[in-house]
Every structure is written in C-alpha cells, then in structure tokens.
Design a protein around this nucleic acid. Structure first.
Lengths: 166, 166
DNA sequence: CAGTTGTTTTGAATTACTCAAAACAATTGG
DNA sequence: CCAATTGTTTTGAGTAATTCAAAACAACTG
C-alpha cells in the first residue's frame, strides 16, 4: 500500500490543517501536502505541485492535485492566476488583490503590491457600461537574472517553461 | 477546386492588402479574409474567425487561421490577448497599449483606454529588480446585458463561451 | 513567365485540463 | 470507539485549444 491513506495524527493539528479546516474542508493527506508545497513554492503549476507532492506522498494522483486546487480556490484559501502563455499558477496569498510581474524570458513570477493604493488602476476611464468587480494587473519584463544573461547574449533559451519560476 | 487559391485582382489592392504588405507579409486569400473579419469582429477566437472566414473562403483550414494569426501578431498588425479561462482572442487595434474588460458571466470583451495616461498603472511599487516592459490590465465585471439579466435571475447560463463576445 | 521563397493544406501530436464512476477516508453522532 | 454519512481520491477516459511537420501550392522577384 502507498503512503496515501489516513492522515497522520501529527498532521491533523497544525497551522496548515487549521487553515484547511477553517475553510470548511476536510483535512486530508493530499491537501496538507499541496498546501505545504504551495507555501514553499508560490506560483507553482499543478504539474509542479504534483511532482513535489509525490515525493512526500507517492500515492497522490495529478487529478487529486487538480481537485485539491479547485477546492482551495473555491474555499478562498488559494488563488489561481493564469498569465498569458502559461499554465495556471497557484499561490496562498489571497485577500489582498496583489499583482504579478512575469519574466518574458524565463517566466519567473513575482508578487507586486498594488501600484497606487487601489483607486487609479481599479478605475478604468471608459467602462462601456460594465460594472467593474476587479482589476487584474500583469507586468511583463525581465527578471534580474535574465537582464544579465541577456547582455551576455550567448546563453540558453528557456521561454515559457515554469522552470525557475517562483 | 475550392475558393482557396490565387488572390483576386480586386483584392490585391486596398487597405487590408496594403496593411499586410506594409508589414512585410505576402498578401493571400486567407490573410485578407482573416484581417477583414478581425476588423468587423474584434476579440474573436481563432475558431470563430475560422468559422466566419470559411463562409467566404471555404477551402481555408483552421491551421491556416492559426498561421495567419501568428504571422499577424509577429508582424505587429494584430494583437493576441489571453484572458483567464478563455481561448486566445485577437484584435487589430495595436500600438496603443489599451486594456480590456471582460464580463464574468458571458465573457463579452470591450476595450478600455489606459486608466490614467500611462504612468501610474505602468509603475508597480516593488519590482523586485525586474525591468518592466509592459503592464497589462484586465478588468472583470458585468456587461450591461448581464447586469439586467442577473437581476431577473431566471435566465440562461453562458459562462466562458465566446458567444456574444465582441 | 519561370524561379524562389513563403504560405497553406493535410494529418497527427501535444499540453493542460475536465469529467465520471467506483474505492476509500474524514468527520458526526450514537 | 465504532458505524453511518458525506466528502475526497483514484482510476480511466475524454476534450479543447493549440502546435508541429511534410508536401502541395501560390505570391512576389527579376
């Protein structure tokens, strides 16, 4: 039998478990594992989370990871972001509507606090009659590493994989 | 033989043809057709463009449409946008970095001019060392139609299809 | 109008994700 | 602490959107 199964007593209590329980979800092995990894590696893809989770909980399936992520985002304890050209990324930081900056070369992602308090970037000029609920901002540019390695223009190509993303 | 083939003399000149030629691309039937449809229906998916293009140029393949769109975006005469949860959308309006507002209920898309000139929303507070090239803003909310039909809460569900998108 | 280059067709493959049924485990309450 | 209930995960399959590659073909060049 694999490591999938009953949640270890040690893990039934703790901050991660509390966070899951508090949102009205059952505490399970896959959920604890996904939440822990998400904490260590924000802006991870489902696939990447799966790879890491498997290391500590080998019986876990990819579909379970998708299920866990859907439950988490539905319950509001995780957030899904979908930058153009990238598979969906997930993060624990929720509630504040922060934004993201994505490296156009290596796809690394960092958080960016809302530029100007809240107002200007949340208030479009012409809404065409739309009721605005949220404003999502994605900055695109070069990360520090790629700035230097682009000058030294010999290096490796790494477009749009999630390698090195954080 | 299908309508695919040599570009009709009538169409070899004209604004659309000029725009294609000016960007260094050859003028072809599928390109003229895609560009014309894109003009009439901005924020269309490849699939939707394909459906419309086929009506006037039956031999056209879906892959050709993808190829045309890749050529156009590469040449800078079309822009690709990828709102979360939606297939890619295309538009002719390029050069100005305008933004978009997407209806969370019916996925209709409208253009939004940059909120505050250019500066505030292009200047994130903490760039983490990134060099910012562009800022992409997506507003989410309810379009006029969905505002009313949500009040009259009996109506049809239409989440995330491109129906009614403009 | 022939040659060259670039484009489109045809056919297949891939990525990221979703769906459904059955097996199974976490909570509830006896 | 055990049984019932409810919710979760596994297993297996399917789908949407997009990409890749080779061969056929058409647009521009001289």
């Amino acid at each position: 039998m694999t490591e999938t199964g009953r949640v270890r007593a040690v893990e039934a209590s703790g901050l991660l478990a509390d966070s899951i329980r508090a949102s009205g979800l059952k505490v399970t092995g896959p959920r604890l594992a996904v939440l822990r990894v998400l904490d260590q590696a924000p802006h991870s893809t489902a696939e990447r989370l799966y790879a890491t989770v498997r290391a500590e909980l080998p019986g876990t399936s990819l579909q379970a990871v998708y299920g866990v992520l859907a439950a988490f985002t539905g319950a509001g304890i995780a957030r899904k972001i979908e930058p153009a050209g990238s598979p969906a990324l997930f993060e624990r930081r929720v509630g504040d509507n922060h934004h993201h900056i994505v490296c156009t070369r290596c796809s690394a992602v960092h958080d960016v606090d809302c530029a100007v308090g809240e107002s200007p970037c949340l208030t479009p000029s012409n809404t065409s009659g739309f009721t605005v609920q949220t404003a999502e901002v994605t900055y695109w540019g070069l990360c520090p590493d790629c700035q230097t390695s682009t000058l030294t223009a010999l290096s490796t190509p790494a477009p749009l994989s999630n390698e090195g993303a954080q």
